[in-house]
Design a protein around this nucleic acid. Sequence first.
RNA 1: GGGAGAGUGAGCCAACCUGGUAUGCUGCCAGCUUUGGGAGCUGGUUAUCCCGGUUCAAAUCCGGGCUCUCCCA
Length: 489
Amino acid sequence: MNIDKYGNFSDWYNEIIKVAELCDLRYNIKGFIVIMPWAMKSIDQIYKFYDAEMERTSHLPAFFPSLIHEKSFGAEKEHVAGFVPEVLWVTEAGDKKLEERYALKPTGEAGIYPMYALWVNGLSDLPIKIYQKGWVWRHETKATKPFIRGREFLWIEAHDVFATPSEASAQVAEDAGMAKTVIWGKLGVPFIMFRRPQWDKFAGADNTFAADTLMPDGKVLQVASTHLLGQHFSKAYGIKYTDAKNEPQFAWQTCYGPGVNRIYAAMVAVHGDNRGMVVPYDAAPIQVAIIPILRKGNEGKVLAEAGKIETALSGIARVKLDTRDQSPGFKFNDWEQRGVPLRIEIGERDIANGSAVLAVRDTGKKENVKIADLNSAITKAGAELGARLASSASERFLKNLDTAKSADEMARKIDEGKMVKVPFCTDAKEGEACAKALKEKHSCDIRGTVFTFFNSEKCEFESSDKPHGEKCVSCGKPANAHVYVARQY
RNA sequence: GGGAGAGUGAGCCAACCUGGUAUGCUGCCAGCUUUGGGAGCUGGUUAUCCCGGUUCAAAUCCGGGCUCUCCCA
């Protein structure tokens, strides 16, 4: 392929899905995609990274059913109002209508919290930190886009229950930390986690914090979110514990949802180039492709040597010896489109020198490496590639952050594909009118105040970056918040 | 959800306007041949999105549906 990612992201994205075989769109149900092995392998890898983080933060895995009782679904009023328009219902079994209908879960709360109500009795039952890997259904009314917005998508959801609000707040920071380790640390995808404005919260939450990354077309993509649920759900579902004074208390809750499909989409979009995907070394299904250069009569010798290299490397990397009956040029191109980070070429010439050719996907450079040195060269090249991808992604991301003092200046910079920080009257409910006005005029969205950066330890529930004597870019009244504004997916 | 465009073998496309035998390339299979950047030759292989209407006759015209893409929300 040869499409300019920055000039025409949609074409680039559609094409890469085809040439790298990420998903098949021919399933013919809107918003439902078939995820193909090359994508699924990396998605599995993302799950593994998150499993490790969940383990590190004392979360335990569980499985909750896909169907939710209608009664249970309606318990928390704001929650149900927020999700009901997108819920798919199961109403029949075979040719019989069911006595009651069940929701295909659009998110887990309403299925999980009735169980939590049974599980939580006293302080000794807390905290609960449980997560589930799986998928949910949301009958989106917005246009669907592969991996970016589907009516069924893969994710992880962690649902935590605490005795105190401060523990819940600490959990939000811990959730942000997991995002930093996986999305930035392992995949090299930079993001800002915002505290969303009050009118743009998760249905039923006190506050929502969400990680936005920047796609090549300048639109932001939310890849993970975590919510301070306060006591709304514990009251609705009766999640109570008996405190030290023998008084019943409602618990404090959080929920965390990294969107695995979207994280994958961001990884593909952020690192790919005009020739195809570039998969970060840690996430690559195949990290090293070995291409034997065969000539009539030497097949046995070359394949034997290539096999030895495969065996030697298999302890330190995911390796694939490509024995397909295709020309070397075809294989080079094929693996490059799929974004395999490293490639070894080995032919008779190399064997005579006791070396092999090591090619690096992102730089395109080839070098001769002694066969005895391959293991260390691979490890080093893989790490360097990961670091290069991360640092160039970070540089691009930061370069696309800007500030503006007026709506016009803001709109101009958003048109350049930037996220723009502006003074804004307030991110409380009353600010919604200003947000709507900006959206109508410039089709942009308020992302919120900065909670934390991908590369920073600091988390701020109340941003210290306050305007001093600045005016809201929308209404002109004194500004109380600095918010980032961008176009969103 | 609104607007626009599109749907023909596995993929891309021609024929559609002006109704009548569906074109080519790629892929795939077999054989030969070749392999250091998308090889070549020969043979084989599969198609008009769905439902209805008009007509002697529909890929083509009309109506409805479904799906995909783009723009907007």
